[in-house]
Computed example of a mutant assay.
Amino acid sequence: MTVPVLRFAAFTDPTLTDAAAGGNPAGIVLDASGLDDAAMQSIAAKVGYAETAFVTVPVVDGDPRRSRLRYFSPVAEVPFCGHATIATAVALAGRDGVGAFTFDTSVGTITIQTRNTDAGLAASFTSVEPEVRAIAPEVLTELLGLLGASVASLHPEYPPLQAFAGNWHPVLVFANAAGFDAFTFDPAAMRTLMDAQGWAGTVTTLTVLGPNEFEARNLFPVGTLSEDPATGSAAASVGGYLRELGLVTPPTRVVIHQGRHVHRPSLLLVDVPATGGIVVSGTASEIA
């Protein structure tokens, strides 16, 4: 059986001449109701993107705009994937019209709004309630060692913590752009640490560009990949992290640039309300 797979780039930078040359590519199967886990895993591996989204139940409770979604990386199922959620919503909006969609995911129900913009179709998802917790000192030491960094490399106003808004992400904010740009890591060793800690998302590293503006590198060693071009779940987690620590004054918008280091410039807009889930927005474009 041949399964149609769409390919979209999410969180594209609207300033690029070819928007699909930026952003984070995602595979999308709009009707995976006939696929078992092994088939979805096989398709995700063949697509080779960081994640492929599968609409396993296209219509939930008779609502044509409510679906069940699952996400697979090339090697395993992941609980949630922000960029594939944005991409799926834009694909559905192109087929069914803009407006609201509801996605039932492994981490809960996600509400997503789609709309037309000057840069094309855009979507916004509201995350589940974010959480923040400490990183064990020995784990932080190991993580920084893998990056060739130290506690002194980090920004004193942004403590290293784990943040959750769908996936758990360790969040490290570098004190300066030079340290942020220069670090390297061994993908296999990083993957071993991430698996041991249950970090199904990314290792999120940031540098401060200005008030409410950051650049991110999200480490995601899987298959041939080492860094993610744009990470919606991490952006939501960062929004929760900033709010929990009082580093922003809600309601506010945070701008995250990502993908420069892997030559796929991306733009994520993060709206942080006073309470509740974090809203992450971006455009998406179909990849020819």
Results as ranks from 00 to 15, higher is better:
residue 235 A to H: 04
residue 33 S to E: 02
residue 23 G to E: 00
residue 38 A to P: 11
residue 211 P to C: 15
residue 30 L to I: 08
residue 143 L to F: 03
residue 86 I to H: 05
residue 118 D to K: 13
residue 131 E to F: 01
residue 176 N to I: 14
residue 265 P to D: 12
residue 180 F to K: 05
residue 226 S to H: 09
residue 11 F to T: 08
residue 251 P to I: 11
residue 211 P to W: 14
residue 84 A to C: 08
residue 55 V to F: 04
residue 282 G to C: 06
residue 278 I to R: 00
residue 225 L to K: 05
residue 82 G to Y: 02
residue 131 E to P: 01
residue 85 T to E: 04
residue 166 G to E: 03
residue 59 V to E: 01
residue 155 H to V: 09
residue 152 A to S: 15
residue 173 V to T: 10
residue 58 P to R: 01
residue 221 P to V: 09
residue 182 A to M: 11
residue 28 I to N: 00
residue 20 A to N: 11
residue 174 F to Y: 04
residue 94 G to V: 03
residue 1 M to I: 12
residue 196 A to D: 15
residue 134 A to H: 12
residue 242 L to A: 04
residue 224 T to N: 15
residue 199 W to C: 03
residue 273 P to F: 01
residue 40 M to R: 08
residue 191 R to A: 10
residue 116 N to P: 15
residue 130 P to E: 10
residue 57 V to G: 05
residue 287 I to N: 04
residue 139 V to M: 09
residue 116 N to F: 15
residue 247 L to G: 00
residue 56 T to V: 10
residue 92 L to D: 08
residue 59 V to F: 03
residue 13 D to Q: 09
residue 93 A to Y: 02
residue 273 P to W: 06
residue 61 D to I: 08
residue 198 G to Q: 14
residue 203 V to M: 12
residue 64 P to A: 15
residue 247 L to I: 03
residue 14 P to K: 12
residue 166 G to P: 00
residue 279 V to G: 06
residue 250 P to I: 06
residue 11 F to E: 04
residue 177 A to V: 15
residue 182 A to H: 12
residue 261 H to K: 14
residue 115 R to N: 11
residue 154 L to K: 03
residue 129 E to G: 10
residue 237 S to W: 05
residue 59 V to G: 03
residue 269 L to N: 13
residue 162 Q to L: 13
residue 246 G to N: 08
residue 215 E to N: 11
residue 235 A to C: 12
residue 4 P to F: 13
residue 25 P to E: 05
residue 275 T to M: 07
residue 101 F to Y: 08
residue 180 F to N: 02
residue 251 P to W: 03
residue 198 G to R: 09
residue 147 L to G: 01
residue 39 A to W: 02
residue 200 A to K: 13
residue 125 F to K: 05
residue 147 L to E: 01
residue 79 P to D: 12
residue 119 A to L: 09
residue 189 A to M: 15
residue 268 L to F: 08
residue 276 G to L: 02
residue 88 T to R: 07
residue 105 T to E: 06
residue 21 A to Q: 09
residue 216 A to W: 05
